[in-house]
Design a protein around this nucleic acid. Structure first.
Lengths: 213, 213
DNA sequence: TAGATTGTTAATCGATTAACAATC
DNA sequence: TAGATTGTTAATCGATTAACAATC
């Protein structure tokens, strides 16, 4: 299926394409040219065509791209045609917020369990799920063949726990902890470092302020 | 101060440098060479030196970099030597989670208000702050000269509200809504699109599965 | 002084954009 | 058929890596 090694830059743009194509679908638009899409997205038409052609070309000369078809194809490339099971490790504010984030379910990401080590949280109910003791996580993951672990716990515990998760058969970690996890290459890690994002914002503000110098 | 237009790639790496330097400080390490840092961070020493030299060079031949000094300099570049005031627009799960995220305060990001349009949330207390009616946001921002707005509300309202915020004098938006805001160039926008991050994770999982083909 | 390591220039690599022939 | 627009090759641009002279 896959023409090995699509660049990270291309992958990062796919979800955004999907979003715009979803909007077009909602507007009832049936087909779109790379040119018209480029105007909406503020990227070059050339880049759009290059990106799509990494996966074999979904368009037709003289016509453009069929919106529905292109949407489905990109969704498939992103693996959104499969269901994904996940657990949330760390049921603090962020973990609970993500658990309540309904949109994930819509995309096929099914939350099956929440875990924490804090006795005050264990047993508490979030979205009809009881928060479980983190010591039960390994068994749960094995039994339910969980694919993804969402790591929403403090830096301190993250490295240690991530190794246990991998030993339990987890295949991917969505990491919100402020550490770079060192795990076998076969384990997929996607980082969301919120504080780093906020620092970038801060940098840009400084630049704006100093502009007139 | 600034040698105009540092590339986005360089900026994105600065917070990570800061994190590693913080760890080194905690370990009591006084100085480090680009080579040793490159081993820890899994990047090339060349890139490290290039990155730092965009800002004028913080090292010394034959010695390396002083950890404390380098840490302070990068923090300054990122604008972390100033306090930043912010409000959270949208006090749902995610908004509340961010409000409770103490680490922001430690970095000088001071949360001064939370707003929502949901009457069930207005008046509720989060971290000793009462959630206010979103209709009061403009006045509040003006009166308190708020710099940053954190947008944690559904796609639907985001575009409209973002314009009001800008009219009220907001200078930067940390955007968690799944839209690309179209605002004047002088307004700083930093996006955190969680669902796009999750899709990238999903893509990588598909790649891993198909690897043996 | 000799050794280490930076700052910086040059070489390489990869990603983006431009151009155009193929084709619907 | 003529016009539109893709798929794809070639040109450009930018970012990363390598190399080394400067210097602490």
């Amino acid at each position: 299926m896959s023409d090995r090694k699509i660049s990270q830059a291309v992958i990062s743009r796919l979800p955004r394409y999907l979003r715009y194509l979803g909007d077009l679908k909602d507007e009832g638009v049936e087909r779109i040219s790379s040119h018209d899409l480029s105007l909406r997205m503020h990227v070059t038409a050339s880049q759009i065509r290059q990106d799509f052609n990494h996966f074999g070309g979904f368009g037709q000369q003289g016509y453009g791209y069929n919106v529905d078809y292109l949407y489905e194809e990109i969704a498939k490339i992103l693996g959104l045609n499969h269901k994904h099971t996940l657990v949330i490790i760390g049921a603090g504010n962020l973990g609970q917020a993500l658990a309540n984030y309904m949109n994930f379910e819509r995309r096929g990401f099914i939350i099956l369990g929440l875990f924490d080590k804090n006795p005050n949280l264990i047993g508490k109910s979030v979205r009809n799920m009881e928060i479980m003791d983190i010591r039960e996580a390994s068994d749960f993951i094995r039994k339910n063949e969980i694919e993804i672990a969402v790591l929403t716990l403090p830096k301190a515990g993250a490295t240690e726990i991530s190794k246990q998760l991998v030993d339990s058969g987890i295949r991917a970690i969505w990491n919100f902890a402020h550490v770079d996890l060192e795990l076998p290459d076969s384990i997929v890690v996607e980082n969301v470092h919120l504080s780093e994002s906020l620092m970038k914002l801060s940098y840009k503000i400084s630049q704006e302020s100093g502009e007139e110098i």
